[in-house]
Design a protein around this nucleic acid. Structure first.
Lengths: 159, 159
DNA sequence: ATTTTGTTATTAGTATACTAACATAATGCA
DNA sequence: TGCATTATGTTAGTATACTAATAACAAAAT
């Protein structure tokens, strides 16, 4: 980034400001939503740099979850990865197209589609775990181990 | 959310796990990318609940920045709000359509479009600042003031 | 047993967010 | 001056991420 959006108002001289200015002072960089977006962008760029098989972070999450629980319906997978029904559909469709998810209809419930890993994706899981760990590590690299734990804890607290 | 994706592996009995299981242990909930996504979703839902004139968080950021700096080119606004050229174009187009941004071409540089607030958006800024503050407050409500500052600081550090 | 309620999945529409390619205009330097 | 580089803005394509509407089916309630 050439022109850093992270400019600060640290040096602002409150004494010399008119009351109206002080009242309307609002620093974008200090708002949690803005900061969350920037941090997410940074993580996404690190993730993309590692580029595991062209997977996106959400596709990665879906695969990890299925690997963890074995198999489940599409909507349930969405809930377990915090994606709504429309989002998880797209994610599952693309993963199926890549041959990383197998779909079959549930004989016990005609509404449901059972989703499971394929042989191809089963063989990838270990590598994906390692890649995932490296990505998290690189994202959190500016922080001490204690700070990393603090950050995760605080983010969970506001979720 | 009914089936909370935030289930923990805290109670996992390491003693009883086979070595292979331990090696491949990877907890999605502990990965910074996943946690960032969930936190961003929570913030987005709080933002949307406050619903200031149908503005989205990104549109809001763009307006705040223009209000702060007066006027600038489209690409520069993108850089100052951390949006790439394609994203800022869409955001500016929609804000213009809503009558919240005025566009005129720069006489000194025929490539540039000068972007500024309209009378309508100038009159909204104060309300937007207040709404923004309430949204940040509600998002960070689970945290103490010290924790809020810590969270912002750590997020900036990894950005 | 029928109705109501809830669940699953699909579809259409909108809004970020990115890449890549392109045209145009401005700037730097040889 | 002239050419290469850089900057600005547009467009096309893909991938989340949401709302809202719909259809099919299952489970619960009366």
């Amino acid at each position: 980034m050439k022109e850093d959006a992270g400019k600060s108002k640290k040096g602002l001289n409150v004494e010399n400001m008119k009351l109206r200015d002080i009242e309307s002072d609002y620093v974008l960089e200090e708002q949690i939503g803005y900061v969350l977006r920037i941090a997410s962008q940074k993580h996404a760029s690190i993730f993309q740099k590692h580029s595991i098989d062209g997977l996106t972070p959400t596709q990665f999450s879906a695969l990890m979850r299925i690997a963890e629980i074995g198999e489940c319906s599409q909507n349930r997978l969405g809930r377990l990865t915090s994606m709504d029904v429309a989002t998880i559909k797209g994610v599952v469709d693309r993963l199926k197209k890549k041959g990383l998810l197998g779909l079959e209809s549930d004989p016990n419930d005609k509404r449901r589609t059972i989703i499971k890993l394929t042989e191809a994706s089963k063989n990838m899981i270990k590598n994906l775990h390692e890649a995932g760990r490296r990505i998290s590590e690189e994202t959190l690299e500016p922080l001490s181990p204690a700070e990393q734990a603090t950050l995760l804890g605080l983010l969970k607290k506001i979720s």
